[in-house]
């Protein structure tokens, strides 16, 4: 068990990893991964606690996580490595030729911890529903988690999946929306406003919990509260408000850091704001 303080320290290191990986590749996304770092750390180190030495594609008898917005790969890879799925030194290979750490998550290179390719948006929730249905058929009581972006909700497939999960009572599934209000072209409200998401999800038959995603104790507490509501006939959704670029002042809430790598000077400034807690890779 990790204390909130320890989880926060891990998240600090993950944020440093994200910045260094994307800078090292001179390519990739920092804004989304920085914003969702607290959630991913909480999910792996506190909530799911899978055995990283016994990874199997089938994942029987353990909780499963799917990343639908695959461009958050840097953050996920860092969490997987820091959790023990592979050596943190491998983070240096991110987005480089021959790496298992592809630009977007992939299964082809057999990186432990990854069960589905993602990157083309809008597909992860359907996949998570399928995995959750298999868990039910296998009488496996573990849960399935899926992280999605808010801009990603503009993809129609999500709404097919939202409809299906409620109708089929997929109640062993917790979907999480990274509600940072930003997408590549600008604020979501300028690109394509999503309206009242809480009301939409509830109208679709989901049990919705709001959550502030950049406060570690709120994240761990809300996920555990949500777990109490699994198995009651309704799929569960965490509407997780976050700050894109959280942890670095000049990146926070700025959509221009969605998919732009920091240069060396920007990296130094950013790292100066985040304590090195576990040792850089």
């Amino acid at each position: 068990m990790y204390s909130i303080k320890e989880l926060e320290n891990i998240a600090r290191q993950v944020r440093r990893d994200i910045l260094r990986m994307v800078n090292g590749a001179a390519s990739g996304h920092v804004g989304g991964p920085l914003g969702s770092a607290d959630f991913l750390v909480a999910l792996y180190f506190d909530v799911m606690q899978p055995d990283p030495t016994a990874f199997s594609m089938d994942g029987k008898g353990e909780d499963l996580f799917f990343l639908s917005n695959g461009h958050l790969s840097a953050g996920w890879y860092s969490v997987l490595a820091r959790y023990g799925y592979f050596d943190v030194k491998e983070l240096a290979s991110f987005r480089k030729l021959g790496s298992r750490l592809q630009g977007h998550p992939a299964t082809q290179e057999a990186l432990p911890g990854i069960r589905m390719s993602s990157g083309s948006l809008g597909q992860g929730l359907s996949v998570a529903i399928g995995a959750a249905l298999t868990k039910k058929m296998n009488l496996d009581e573990h849960l399935v988690y899926c992280l999605m972006g808010d801009g990603e909700l503009e993809e129609g497939q999500n709404w097919e999946a939202l409809m299906f999960a409620a109708a089929h009572k997929v109640d062993n599934l917790i979907a999480v929306i990274d509600y940072n209000g930003k997408q590549i072209d600008g604020p979501v409200n300028d690109v394509l406003p999503l309206g009242d998401l809480n009301a939409k999800f509830e109208a679709f038959g989901w049990k919705v919990f709001p959550m502030y995603g950049n406060d570690m104790s709120e994240v761990t507490g809300t996920i555990k509260k949500a777990q109490w509501f699994t198995g009651q006939g309704q799929p569960i959704l965490l509407l997780m408000t976050t700050h894109m670029g959280c942890g670095v002042d000049f990146m926070t809430d700025n959509h221009e850091w969605h998919g732009v790598p920091p240069n060396n000077e920007q990296l130094a400034r950013a790292l100066g704001q985040i304590e090195e807690t576990l040792g850089d890779y």
Binding site: M116, S126, G130, A131, L133
Partner: peptide, 27 residues
């Protein structure tokens, strides 16, 4: 118990099928 009616939503059907394989089903 092994038949899933997904409605007129083929994209969702393909995603669910992919997910069902995780845990050993043959969709």
């Amino acid at each position: 118990e092994r038949f899933i009616q997904v409605g007129i939503a083929e994209a969702n059907m393909m995603g669910i099928a992919a997910g069902l394989t995780i845990g050993g089903k043959i969709p």
